[in-house]
Simulated assay, not measured.
Amino acid sequence: MWAITKASIRAMFRSPSAVVFSLAFPLVFILVFGFIGGRSGTVRVGIDAQSDTASIIYRQLASTPKLQLVTNETQAEMEDDLRKGRLTAIVRIQGKDLPQNPPLRYKIFVKSSTATNPDEKATLLGILKTGINAADDVAYPRPSVAEVKEETVPGREYRPIDFILPGQLGFSLLSAAVFGTAFLFFSLRQTLVLKRFFATPIHRMYIILGEALSRLLFQSFGSIVIIGLGYFAFGFTLVNGFVTFLEMLILCLFGLIVFMGFGFVVSGIAKTESTIPPMANIVTLPQFLLAGTFFSVDVFPAWLQPICKIMPLTYLNDALRKIAFEGLHLWNLGPQLLVLTIWGVVVYAVAVKVFRWE
């Protein structure tokens, strides 16, 4: 069994597809979202050259992190960007040439186009209204019918990497387990290696365990690399430090064991090697898209959410996030572990029925 394990580990490290699906693919997404950080969602706004840049309105806009003010383009260039959707709007603040008619001091002209993102336009208008209200409070102090009392409680900063990394970690486990196991056992069966193994005195269970152990060790290495990069490079939250890391690793191995069952099923029912990718994609692709890998399942329509919530990857991703960010322990994850266990029992029952040695 140990000899099979060592040989399989060497084969995986020499396999480009195994390295890509287990390490390179999730690392690319982690790097992208890690570098994006909290800077996503900036609204680009062009400032007309005739605008009163000394006005309090302009200063309010310039001090808003959500806005990126474009002042280094000509009017023609901004008009072209506006038509192509590169700018949300062009703003002109007229103040100096207004007739003396208090209390109106400024007129603000907002020019947008049909290519403008409606959400970005709403964000800009909301920021403008907030800035005008703040300016009104300075210029015309007045009584109010209500007073807002703010209270800020200490909490953890939730970064994009805290959501993305567990999702990518879960998907790397799913894809490596399904594709790796399916291709491996189909190849071993097709080349009659499994038949020769079966003819030796070694118990058939040790053959399966040897291949499974090699996958567990290989994916443990990949999980350590992914979590370590997220923690040291992008500040991924590990609430309880090394204890959280160990619990995530244990949960990853449990999830991998469950997902390997899908690989055994695919390898057992595949008739040719060319049928493995589409069959494996039927298992992995819906979970990649719907199981909370990039965004919460709550953003999907109500009719689609029940489908999302029966997928095993949904519960693995949720459990990883609760351990890493919320500080829960494995014994606090009863519902998630129960669903994963049920999936494991069902899928291995099917795998036993369809598994073939030759």
Rank of each mutant, 00 (worst) to 15 (best):
A3S: 15
A7D: 10
A7W: 06
S8Q: 04
R10I: 08
R14S: 13
A18Q: 15
L23Q: 03
F25Y: 15
L27V: 05
L27I: 08
V28G: 10
R39H: 10
V45P: 06
V45W: 11
I47H: 12
I47C: 06
D52M: 01
S55D: 05
I56F: 06
Y58C: 00
L61C: 00
L61N: 00
K66F: 08
L67R: 04
V70D: 02
N72F: 02
N72G: 09
Q75V: 10
D80I: 04
D81Y: 12
L82I: 03
L82Y: 02
G85H: 01
G85M: 01
R86T: 05
T88Q: 05
A89P: 02
Y106L: 11
S112R: 08
A115Q: 12
N117G: 12
P118I: 06
P118F: 07
K121D: 07
T123P: 01
L124W: 01
G126L: 01
T130Q: 09
I132W: 02
Y140S: 09
E147R: 07
E150W: 13
E151H: 15
E151F: 15
P154K: 09
R156Q: 14
R156A: 15
R159L: 13
L169S: 13
G170C: 07
L173I: 11
A176V: 06
A177S: 07
F185A: 15
S187H: 13
R189L: 03
L194I: 12
R196I: 05
F198G: 15
I207Q: 04
L209C: 13
L209Y: 05
G210R: 07
S214Y: 00
L217P: 13
F218E: 02
F218Q: 02
F218H: 05
S223C: 03
I226G: 01
L229H: 03
G230P: 07
Y231M: 03
A233Q: 07
A233S: 10
F236R: 01
N240L: 10
G241S: 01
F242C: 05
F245Q: 00
F245E: 03
M248D: 00
M248S: 03
F254H: 02
G255V: 02
I257G: 14
G268C: 05
A270D: 10
T275Y: 04
N281M: 14
Q287T: 11
A291V: 11
S296V: 00
V297F: 01
W303L: 07
L304R: 05
Q305N: 10
Q305S: 09
C308G: 12
K309C: 04
M311Q: 01
L313E: 12
L316A: 12
L316M: 11
A324M: 08
L328G: 09
W331G: 13
N332K: 10
L333P: 11
L337D: 03
W343H: 12
V347D: 05
V347H: 12
A349W: 14
V350S: 13
V352W: 02
V352H: 05
V354P: 09
E358R: 11
